[in-house]
Design a protein around this nucleic acid. Structure first.
Length: 262
DNA sequence: ATGGCACTCCCAGAGTGA
C-alpha cells in the first residue's frame, strides 16, 4: 500500500500538478493539505476521471484537507470532535485541518498542523494547544480498530536539527522551537515512528522550500511533512521517499509530495 | 535586522503562510 501526503497550497491552483503526479505515481491514497476551498467548489472531477474517490473537509481561503483514494475509505470523520468529544475539541475544528478514514487495515489520518507564525505569539499558543488535542485524538484512535495508524501530513515542525538546512540558532524559530518539538515527541511517544527515518539518516532531505529565498535551487529547505506510523506499519514499511520533482515545475507548491510504502 | 513570494478574496491590498 502506498500513502502519500502533499501540501498543495491551493488545490484549484495545483490541479494540473496533482493530476500529472497521480498519473505517474498511482498511489492508493493521497492526503492533501491547504486545499483552500469550500467543499462544493473542490475540483473532484479530474480525480474521479483518474479513478480516485475524494473525501474533503474544506473552508474558504485557508486550511482545508482532502484524501484521494483508489478505493473508498471507511469510517470517515473530519475534525477532532468526533473522536475526542466537544469539550476537548473546543473551537479547534473551526479550522479544517483533520480528516481520517480507513483503507484496508490502516487508519489514515491526514493532518495540517497550524503554522504558529512566530514563537510566543497567540498563533503559537494555538499550535501547541492543537498538538495537545492531537495527542488525545491519536490516543483515542489507538484504542479502536484497526490498530495500524498512519498519521501523515504537514506537521510544520522539523523533528530534529538534521531536518533543517541550517539549524544554527533555530531554537527560537517557528517549526524548530523546543516546545513544538516536545509536543511532537509526546505524540511519537504514544507509539508512532517517523517512517522517513527508517530509511534515511543523513541531513539534506527536505519537503518544503521557501518561495522567497530561492530555497529550492539551493536546497535550503526543511523536512516538515511526515508519516508517523504505528509499530506494525513501521515494521512492514519498505520505503518512504520525498519526490522533489514537482517542486521544480513552473508555479509549484512550496511543498513536495512524500510517499510511504508498506 | 528585514524582506523576499504565492495564494485568497466584495479586484486592492491586507492576511496568511513557514
Amino acid at each position: 500500500m502506498q500513502i502519500a501526503t502533499w501540501n498543495v497550497n491551493s488545490i484549484r491552483s495545483r490541479v494540473e500538478h496533482v493530476v500529472d503526479w497521480l498519473k505517474a505515481h498511482p498511489v492508493d491514497a493521497l492526503c492533501l493539505q491547504e486545499t483552500k476551498v469550500i467543499d462544493k467548489d473542490f475540483p473532484s472531477s479530474p480525480f474521479r476521471e483518474l479513478g480516485y474517490h475524494a473525501v474533503i473537509s474544506g473552508q474558504k481561503s485557508y486550511n482545508g484537507v482532502a484524501i484521494l483514494s483508489r478505493q473508498p475509505l471507511a469510517e470517515v470523520n473530519a475534525g477532532f470532535e468526533p473522536v475526542v468529544g466537544t469539550e476537548l475539541a473546543g473551537d479547534l475544528d473551526e479550522q479544517k485541518r483533520v480528516l481520517s478514514g480507513i483503507l484496508d487495515d490502516v487508519r489514515i489520518v491526514n493532518l495540517y498542523v497550524p503554522n504558529g507564525a512566530s514563537v510566543g505569539c497567540d498563533k503559537y499558543d494555538y499550535k501547541l494547544r492543537w498538538l495537545y488535542v492531537l495527542r488525545a485524538y491519536l490516543l483515542e484512535l489507538q484504542g479502536r480498530s484497526p490498530v495500524n495508524i498512519c498519521a501523515c501530513g504537514d506537521f510544520n515542525i522539523a523533528p530534529e536539527d538534521r531536518d533543517i538546512h541550517d539549524p544554527v540558532g533555530k531554537d527560537t524559530h517557528i517549526m524548530a522551537s523546543p516546545a513544538e518539538r516536545e509536543a511532537l515527541q509526546a505524540i511519537a511517544a504514544l507509539g508512532f515512528a517517523d517512517a522517513f527515518r527508517k530509511f534515511v539518516s543523513e541531513t539534506g532531505h527536505f519537503s518544503w522550500w521557501d518561495y522567497r529565498t530561492r530555497g529550492f535551487r539551493n536546497n535550503r529547505g526543511w523536512r516538515i511533512d511526515h508519516h508517523w506510523v504505528s509499530a506494525g506499519l513501521y515494521e512492514r514499511a519498505t520505503s518512504c521517499a520525498i519526490d522533489s520533482t514537482p517542486r521544480g515545475l513552473p508555479k509549484p507548491s512550496d511543498h513536495a509530495p512524500v510517499v510511504f510504502t508498506a
